[in-house]
Design a protein around this nucleic acid. Sequence first.
DNA 1: TCTTATTTGTTCGTATGTATT
DNA 2: GAATACATACGAACAAATAAG
Lengths: 258, 258
Amino acid sequence: MSTIEVPRPRFAQIADVLRDRIQRHVYAPGCPLPSEPELSAEFSVSRVTINRAVGLLRSEGLVRVHRGRGTFVRAIPVITRHATKRFGEREQGRGAFDVEVRALGLEPGHEVVVDRVAASERAAEFLGVDVGSELVVRRRKFYAGDVPVQLADSYLPAELAEKAGVTEAETGHGGTYSRLADIGRAPVHFVEDVTCRGATAKEAEFLDMEPNQPVLEVVLVAADKDGQPVSLTQHVMAGQQWQLRYEWTDQVLEPADA
Amino acid sequence: MSTIEVPRPRFAQIADVLRDRIQRHVYAPGCPLPSEPELSAEFSVSRVTINRAVGLLRSEGLVRVHRGRGTFVRAIPVITRHATKRFGEREQGRGAFDVEVRALGLEPGHEVVVDRVAASERAAEFLGVDVGSELVVRRRKFYAGDVPVQLADSYLPAELAEKAGVTEAETGHGGTYSRLADIGRAPVHFVEDVTCRGATAKEAEFLDMEPNQPVLEVVLVAADKDGQPVSLTQHVMAGQQWQLRYEWTDQVLEPADA
DNA sequence: TCTTATTTGTTCGTATGTATT
DNA sequence: GAATACATACGAACAAATAAG
């Protein structure tokens, strides 16, 4: 098993050089890279090879390409989402997101659309309702500055949403969770599943990423004090753009041989 | 805003067909795909186009390619990691992982190497020690069956590791956390940061993935009842292969207008 | 509005290199 | 060594999106 140093492929080497230039701001955030014919001449390789090198940078989320316009360096702010601290201090939903984005010196933005759908098998299982029963869904889009950063769809059983008065875009102070609290169904128990997968075409379009780039998907089920599920939320975020933080405290362990 | 259906590129269409065949087990897990020249003939495109289509499947983690041998369908079991339930029932470390893997009907495996390193800036900050101070690091590799699925490096201040008696590979019943409990430093407060990034070359090699495919990185800081950090663990997992589950309970919310 | 130039996207045919059997 | 299979690269061509006139 000799460790002969195989020369890296040229497209990878060129990607290394371009990556380095981006990191050293030779190509500054928001600015265009030289055109592919120009890079082709500089590195004395075919344009296809340049295109492949740039493809690597795209898949890393370092550049954004617009056909007919050029290739531009992306600024990637990393947002920290404090999952277990979002709800205790009445900073739920928009509120928590606002705090997290302002912590970066950016202006948070949101759009909400309310819709009704029939429960999918998966949603029905999580929410403990029948497949096909009516759900109210709040589809939200989140922005940091003018950069789209997150999609979040929240599902509630229609009956519950009507009781709580959250069938319109505006839900009043404290958001959906506060309205649920008002009717004695405050969510207190939370289960979150985090997965990583390639972005769908629609997600990629909204999040301004390449299709197949990784997204983080967070599925949150909130239940009330009786353990009854009250809402299901699916968050989708550009993978490289977020950090998810969880904090918890356990019972003290006794010594093993006690 | 017309929705003209732009024809997808051929390599993408071919990837769709191959993906479908894999999902329908026309190409079964572990079995080879037809060779590129064969697919080239079947779809009447050049071999380069086939190669690019297969490249998509690689980046999705659906196939594993071995030069000179062929392209093989990967079996991707998804392992659920119950982060907040790992420690309470003395199922820490190996124990928790074993349960999670056996839940899939697979045999868990591990390797441990103990080493000593100087604290990096980042590690020093998390652990509350001086930069450059000595740390004991336990580098672990985890397998599900014979498939490598996770890397985990745990760092403890050397002084603490010696007191707790965890400077060797074997740490006895209950693992490191139990030994810490034995000396009154049981970890009870946990902070986990989850991020998503491209695999490094070394990680990709061990995890049997393509370089640049997404991995989940989990950084766990455990602290004792006085809030003193006792250990820092960095987990690296193939992105598509894991689901991370967190559960927690909050205080009951009072109505917003109370 | 129409035309033209620029820029990236895709594909081909061909050739050569490397790893495995 | 020979055959097979994948990896990379070039030059050329055309398509599609955008920008400038």
